[in-house]
Structure formats: structure tokens, C-alpha cells
Design a protein around this nucleic acid. Sequence first.
RNA 1: GCGGGCGUAGUGUAGCCUGGUAUCACGCUAGCUUGCCAAGCUAGUGACUCGGGUUCAAAUCCCGGCGCCCGCACCA
Length: 569
Amino acid sequence: MVRMDEDKLLALAKRRGFFYPAFEIYGGVAGLYEYGPMGAALKANIADRWRRFYVLGEGFAEIDSPNVSPEEVFAASGHVKEFTDFSVECTKCREAFRADHLVKDIENPAALGADGLSAALKGQGAKCPSCGGELSVPQKVNLMFKTQIGPTANSRVGYLRPETAQAMFFSFVNHYRHFREQLPFGVVQVGRGFRNEISPRQGLLRQREFNMMEAEVFVHPERKTWPRFHEVADDRLRLVSNDGKEHVIAAKDAVHKGIIKNEALAYFVALTQRFLLDVGIDPKRLRFRQHLTNEMAHYASDCWDAEVELSYGWVEAVGVADRGSYDLDQHIRHSGAQLTAFERFAEANEVERDVIAPVHARLGPLFKGKAKAIAAAMESAEGLAVESDGTIKLAIDGAEVTVPPECFERKRVREKVSGRRFVPHVIEPSYGLDRILYSVMEHSYHEEEKEEYTVMRLPISVAPIKFGVFPLMAKDGLDGFAMKLDAELRDAGVVTSYDDSGSIGRRYARMDEVGTPFCVTVDHETLEKGTVTIRDRDSKAQVRVPAKELAALAPRLLRHGFSVAKGGK
RNA sequence: GCGGGCGUAGUGUAGCCUGGUAUCACGCUAGCUUGCCAAGCUAGUGACUCGGGUUCAAAUCCCGGCGCCCGCACCA
């Protein structure tokens, strides 16, 4: 029964132009999908709602960075090294296999390293599954799409990004400055990611090129609170913690009891719930599951996935992770850039310390080209020891250099220390847009019990078309009137669909299938009294309103629902 | 990638075993009709997943590719 729904939904998705496999006339390519007119609109509307939460609601800044990135970025992020699967090759028939899939009786073999896999395979005497030949040692296969930046031989190696997050990290100082050097703040990006999956499946849920909406929220490492936490404090969350227990609990209690590690993380878990419900996820089919300790990235201190129940089972749609300072640390290490925030002490400290001050007038002539490096080394080295003969020994470029006494002075200085630099921590809510879109479609899908009749009960805000506009019959001037009404609505910024074909019931049905919340019909009474009917998708109820008022009424209907029309007239 | 199931108009299907270019329904388009929930009549539209082989002839038989679904595994 569940299977049936899924097939019917996929059929509807294609028939009505939501989504379908890409490149169909060339046989299709696994893991690549195309959004049709309804799907593209639905996707844009969901992303819009997301921005309403994250950009308008939280005041976060949206950026837009390239899909193609130089190798250095992913060397720093760890993707070049770690974003891999292990494969083994048969030495006889040359066939390749995923190493972790050949390992038997080990829980989570994917978590094994090269040595662990190698040992496990050897220990089990694993042979080639197709010819029985000997297997090679496990080799890493990177799952990023590799390319070259620039067409000529001296081009740089590049990758299509597997996530949008990195630009929010490596451009941290720009964002920090934009927010006038105040924590906490957030940066978001809505865009595409690319993962060259070995075997993509399950339609929109696992694609090779997919859409995500990511936020990186930079917080003080010792103050992982959130200023607006009180707004969500009483939101009830369904939490499955990694001890296997399920809690239905208010956000504030989840924090107090330590189920969710900190307030900032809990805030974004609660915000995620609000967003998902807003775009049409069924609350009964939503839960948050904490990552198991061995599933969590080693740097993450806590991670919660929003999981949505679909015909495929529970599917992860959003991940909310406390990533600590890992990502910024990595880019600091690899690039040398100072990706830090500055914190002013309440009172500036005065400290006295001994320093070695280079005498440049002597250093220069004596050491020539090396003088600059020597001076820098003297200034940066804390507590340099002066040898018994009065010289200093320094290691410059791997060679020891002896600096005679006349080249420096020993001084005691008073310094004012007004604050300290530190690497912020990051809370990362990461949303799979395609998965959310698909989930919204499944949860909106509604079939009338008796007849074969489908209604997509999409929330008004995400529905691709807001109003169907019909003349009851395309004659007697009804069609002309309806066309004018349609143009007025579109002029007011409302997405409409004009339709004068077939019976009125058929046209309602078409709109129901794409989730259009309202249909306006022009009939003979319109010509006499100037009123039109508005029909509600979910209740099929109708009310008459003056046609003249429709364009003004429409935005209120879209905001508050059908009851506005009922109450109004 | 493994195991299983599968691929015929936009959709759902018949035909495949036993080779002779394709059934029915819905949809869609036009006309008539009806006059507020997929009504009716008429006409039209439109398909054998791709490639190779066997054959006088392939949707049908054989081989291979691609794709889809389920399970395993992985993941946003």
C-alpha cells in the first residue's frame, strides 16, 4: 500500500511536471533529475520559506560562492582525503568492488580504515565474488567530481564542491567584518553540491547533483546560548537520543537534561522543526535522531538529524551539528589566514615581559638577506635564552644561526593586553532541499477514498500555482472576463493558471493535483452581479466575492487561508 | 557494487512462451453538447529503453549497455 503511493506519486511528479529523470531521451543518467515547471516553482518556494526563517528571521547573511573550487579548499576541509570509499580490485579479472561491502560480520565496516579493511578481508580469506581470484589491497576512491580549472596544461586541479559550506568558512573574516565583528552571527548559502555516488538510488533522495540550504552559525566557544532561545523554549520535540531512548520533550527541557548538548544547537533543532512544519511536513512523521558516537564526525560534539518518514522509511532531511572549531582550524592550518574573532577583556591587562629587540642597524649589514627572518624570529620567540657567551642561537630555515650580542637589546616592556583572539565554534544546520521537496510532496499527497482522485495538500506558501482562473464556459463573454481577472491577479504578483478547457470538474481536478489552493470561477451570475466564486482546494467549499475586490483579497487569502473569504463576505 | 523484480503512447496496460511493426482505458487537442467538481458524443494525437546478433521478417528469441524499483550498504 505504501509502495503504491510512492509509484503513484512518481507518476504524478512526471505527469504534472514536478520532476523526472534528466536526459531521458538519451537514456537518462542515474542520480540526475530535472525539475519541471511545477517542481522548479515548488523548489523556489521552499527555498524562499527557508530564507524567511534564516535570512529575514535570524538576520543571517546569504552568500553565493562558486561550485568549482580549487583543490586546496578540499585538502583543507578533509574531503580530498576522507570523502572516499575503499575499493578493491580482483587481480585476475580486474573487476572493482567496494571493500567495505565484501567484509562480513563486522558492524559498520565503512568506519574501518585502510588497514582495518585490509586486515578484515585477509582474515576472512575474501576472494573475488565473480571469479574467485585474489584481491588487491583496498584503494581509496574519491567521490568528488574532479576537473581542471583552465583548459591548458598548466591549469589548476579543481573539484565540484560536495557541499556549500566551505566558502562560509574560508571567507570567515569577510563575514565577521560584515557583522561588525560581533558574535554570534550566521552566514547561509542555497546552492548545489555534487557527489559522484557509486550507485545513486531512490530518486530525488540521493542524487549526484543536488540542492542544499546550509547555514554556518558562528558562536563563542564558551557561550553556546542563543538570544532568541526563549521563543522556541516550549516547542515540543520528538528526540531519539543515541542511547536509543525516545523523548517527546520541550526544547528547554532537552537542554536542561543534557539530551541536546547546548542551547544554540537546540535552538536550530527547534527552528528546523518549525521550518519543516511550515513547508508541509507532517508532524507525525518527523523526528530528530542523534548521531551515534561512531557515526559522528570526530570533531563534532553533537549532531541531530531531522528525519522524515517516507515510503522509503525514515530519511535524513536535515543535519544540525555542533562542529566545534574544526572547519576554521583546518583552513587556518592550510592557508595561514587568521580566521579568528577578537574578544575584548572587561578591563585591559597590563603585563610586563622581557623581550629581545633586534638592532636592525647591526643585523642588516651582518646577515644581509637573512636579517629579516632573524629579526622576526627574535620578536616572535617567547623566552629566548641568551647563551653564556652573550649570543643567541636561532633556527632559520633549518640552519642554526648564532646572533652576536651587539645585534639585539634585552628589554623589559609593559604591554596592554585588551583582549584575545580565538577561533569561534560553528553550529551547522544543513538542509537537503531535494529531500525536503520530495518529503513535502509525499506528505501532501492525498487520495480521496472512493474514487481515484488525488489532491496535493501543499501549504499555500509553497504551492506552485496559487489561483486557478476559469470561465464556467468559454463563451458569452465569460472567457474574456476571466482572462481579465487572471491578468489582474498576475499583475498583483499572484501566480495563476487560466484554463477554459473541458468540464469545470476536470479543471478543478487538474489544479488539485498540483496543489493549487484556490480556484476562481466566472459564471453567468458574474455578468449580472459582478461576483465570482472562490473554491477551496481542501474543503471544496465555495464563496462568492465581488470580482473587483479579488486582486486586493488574494494576498490576504494566501496569507491567512480560505476562512478570510468566508468571514469577509 | 551485490541479490531480486522490471522497462510497450503523457499514464496504466494487452501482446512476448508459440516472431509477421501493436490492444484497451485514461489523458491530451479540436468540434458539438452540458452549465460548478475528472459527465456524454465525434474526430484527432501518440509507444515497443538503447545497441548488437539470429532471421526473409524481432515488441517477441540471444548477447550487451542504460535506466527504474526493492533489500543490503552508504548518504544531505
